[in-house]
């Protein structure tokens, strides 16, 4: 299938700003989904509010677009109701880590079979450039006119420590890596997290002297290093970079698999089968 067949071009124009690279992540997702022959009728995409939340509504899938930050909560109900359905969640960084932070860590803890993609553009784009929990220290935002003073979240470390069984990072410059981790995440059985670094030249760039979309992409290129390169860096040097690639890939029992086991009580005359592990 052509990638265009997955996109509802009849409802264009897109709402995104010129130079936005969220579409690159969606494009990469579609290529991975196509390669994996993902059954659209057995797939539900859940997304919420903000630029990253609105973008998936243009895809020809079943799309549930919910309240700000709550995509993973809704997705939990979707997956428990129909464990056979593939559930994919797209979120922005504010959506996933600020207002939705609680749902994020609990979905990871439960190891529920959801592929979660966080698009990290380091700013609240749609609402006009307010700072996010991912805005780098010193960067300007409408609500940080003197520069950001708060430290940022490391999304991958957060997901890994909360219990996610697949954790990876990609970016909109190194597309082979983004494609590979997206594909692995979609094939993963438990909770899979992909953080994708994207660029927002309008709301982030303009306030931080990188309004040129190409320079924003260049900035991301300079921000990231592969794991192999990172190993040669000092701890201080590493702290200034985003490492891309796979961090966690383990096989643990997924939540709906545990539930299926629990439902066996019906077959074994109410014998309790859940054991402490």
């Amino acid at each position: 299938m052509s990638i265009r067949d997955y996109v509802k071009e009849d409802v264009f124009p897109l709402f995104t700003c010129p130079g936005c690279t969220h579409g690159t992540v969606i494009n990469t997702f579609l290529r991975a989904a196509d390669e994996l022959k993902l059954d659209r009728d057995k797939t539900v995409i859940v997304c919420a509010i903000g630029c990253a939340g609105r973008t998936p509504t243009y895809l020809d899938f079943n799309v549930l677009r919910v309240t700000h930050g709550r995509a993973l909560a809704f997705a939990t109900g979707v997956k428990l109701a129909r464990p056979d359905v593939k559930v994919i969640v797209f979120m922005g960084d504010g959506d996933a880590l600020a207002i939705g932070g609680n749902h994020f860590i609990h979905a990871a803890r439960r190891n529920i079979g959801i592929t979660a993609v966080v698009l990290r553009n380091e700013i609240y784009g749609m609402t006009g450039g307010q700072y996010a929990p991912t805005t780098p220290v010193g960067a300007k935002a409408t609500t940080a006119p003197y520069g950001m003073i708060e430290p940022s979240f490391d999304t991958c470390k957060l997901a890994a420590s909360a219990g996610a069984t697949y954790v990876a990072r990609g970016d909109i410059f190194n597309l082979n890596n983004l494609y590979n981790v997206m594909k692995s995440a979609l094939q993963h059985k438990g909770f899979a997290l992909v953080e994708a670094l994207t660029s927002c030249p309008i709301q982030f760039g303009r306030r931080n002297k990188v309004s040129d979309p190409a320079k924003m992409v260049q900035r991301i290129k300079n921000m990231v290093v592969t794991k192999a390169v990172a190993e040669k860096l000092s701890t201080e040097e590493q702290a200034e970079k985003f490492i891309i690639g796979e961090f966690v890939n383990t096989r643990e029992i997924e939540l709906t698999e545990r539930y299926a086991k629990l439902l066996d009580i019906n077959k074994k005359e109410n014998e309790v089968v859940i054991t402490m592990s």
Partner: peptide
């Protein structure tokens, strides 16, 4: 669920199915 907000979210998700 982790809170009441998530609880309604989850039941809506299930009802959509």
């Amino acid at each position: 669920m982790e809170d009441e907000i998530a609880s309604v979210g989850a039941i809506i998700g299930a009802s959509v199915m």
